[in-house]
Structures are given as structure tokens and as C-alpha cells.
Design a protein around this nucleic acid. Structure first.
Lengths: 120, 120
DNA sequence: GTGAAATGCAACCGTATGGTTGCTCATGGC
DNA sequence: GCCATGAGCAACCATACGGTTGCATTTCAC
């Protein structure tokens, strides 16, 4: 199998898949999980389950989705599995929104120029 | 250092439903739409459709979802329906991520203090 | 007024998603 | 060694989601 690595630079600090990250954040339960992990540091699945109103299995699935988006990371400790947040990815998401907004600002600027140019 | 104030800021314009907004952004097609609207100003459905690889109907559905999250707004002009981005909502989303990250920073701070307290 | 363009509406379809239950496996405490 | 706890695995289920097609409606342009 061809190990074709993406042409994108490995260390590029951009989200490789913004939609994936936003989709992961786009669920109330998962957003709660992220918030709890941010507020309280590493927590086990069991800990995360009580306090949530769904099954442990559901929590596990959500954590896997968050992990798939690079938003959380797990650490195995004994029979427990602790999860902690990956802040860098969240910051990347934030920056992604920044970029979009600034595009809009640019567009406004261009529009202004164009309008002024037409007034003669 | 964070002064302990009522957990929710009084007049802060917060997202009433962050998950909804993130979910709306959590789809490649929709993210593209938002980006295009940000970069190019108001566009009609027809305009948005060519350039996308799905049907006009699909685009319409996506736009409605974005509108439901408050991310875009439509203006009817003649037989056309122009869509433009609602930057405030995007900024709110960005701020939401900020808040989450800062929680984490606070937690790190507390953790540091606690560890230092234990070293005796 | 006729035709083409820009949308709207509704039904339909396959699949992903969020959730559950039931069972097994590993680990730590006593 | 025993047993409770923490977690994994797999099957299953209802519904939401992304997408399509077909047809009706409004509006502009000539």
C-alpha cells in the first residue's frame, strides 16, 4: 500500500478538517463533556457518566467521537481510562472562525472601496 | 486571576444554543457556504448552487439549517433570495470556545496551586 | 403574453447518528 | 480467592440527516 502522505505540511497549525471538529462540538452531550473536562481536569468514563443523563456506553461513544476530532485524549491508568481535553484543537477551531470572520471584514472593505470608486 | 463572579455574565450576549451553531458548522458543504458568503457578500441560491456539487434543493436545505442557527440571513430581492452571513453569531461561537479554553486555564492554575500546596 | 430563470414544496431513500441492552473481560481491594 | 468496579464489544432500534426527483409557483425580460 502506498504511503502517500498528504501534500499538506505536517506541522501546519490549521485544522485538517474543521467540519469534523465542529460536528464533534455540535452535540449538547459532547459539548458538556468538553466543558466538564476543561473545568475539572482528567476524568474517568464512570465519573463522566454520573452527571450525564445517558448510559456509560453512550458517553464512551461520544468520547470516541471527540477523540476522532482530536478534541480529547485518553490516558489509561489501571482499570480506569482518564480523558483530558486537547486545548490546542479547540484553539484551532477558534482561529478557524476568526479566519472566516476576517474574510468577511475584507469583503466589506472591498465593497466600500468599490462603492466609493463608483461615486464620481 | 479570575474573580469569582456569578457563573453567567449578566449582559453578555451568549449563544443561546452553542451546540446548534456548532452542528450547523459541522458539515463540509455548509462550512463552504459560510466561507463563500463571507468572502463574496450576499449570493443567491442559484449562485451558491453552481460551484457546489449538490443539488439546488440540498443547498436550500443547508441554508435553512444555517439560518436556524442564526448564522445566515436572507433578503428577498425580486424573484431572487439573497443570503448573507451573520457575523455576530460566528463571533459568539468563537467566544464560546474562548470561554471553554479559559476554564481549562483556570483548572491548570488551580491544579498548580494544589500541587504546590501539597509539597511541604 | 410567453418562455426561461429562480424558488418553493413534498415525497422519497439510504445511511449515519444517538441511544439502548446484554454480556464479557480486566483490575484493584480486602 | 472473591467480588465489586471500570470498561469493552456487539447487536439492535428509532430517528435525523443529506441528498434526490418531480412538479408547482413567482417573476423578469423580450
Amino acid at each position: 500500500m502506498s504511503v502517500r502522505r498528504p501534500s499538506v505540511a505536517p506541522h501546519a497549525r490549521e485544522l485538517r478538517n474543521p467540519a469534523l471538529v465542529f460536528a464533534a462540538l455540535g452535540d449538547k452531550t459532547r459539548l458538556d463533556l468538553v466543558a466538564r473536562l476543561c473545568a475539572g481536569g482528567p476524568l474517568s468514563i464512570a465519573r463522566l457518566t454520573d452527571g450525564a443523563d445517558v448510559t456509560r456506553q453512550a458517553i464512551t461513544k461520544h468520547l470516541n467521537i471527540l477523540a476522532g476530532a482530536g478534541l480529547v485524549r485518553d490516558i489509561r491508568v489501571g482499570r480506569e481510562r482518564l480523558w483530558e481535553v486537547e486545548t490546542r484543537q479547540i484553539e484551532e477551531a477558534r482561529r478557524c472562525l476568526d479566519r472566516i470572520c476576517s474574510q468577511w471584514d475584507d469583503a466589506l472593505g472591498r465593497l466600500k472601496l468599490a462603492v466609493e470608486g463608483e461615486e464620481h
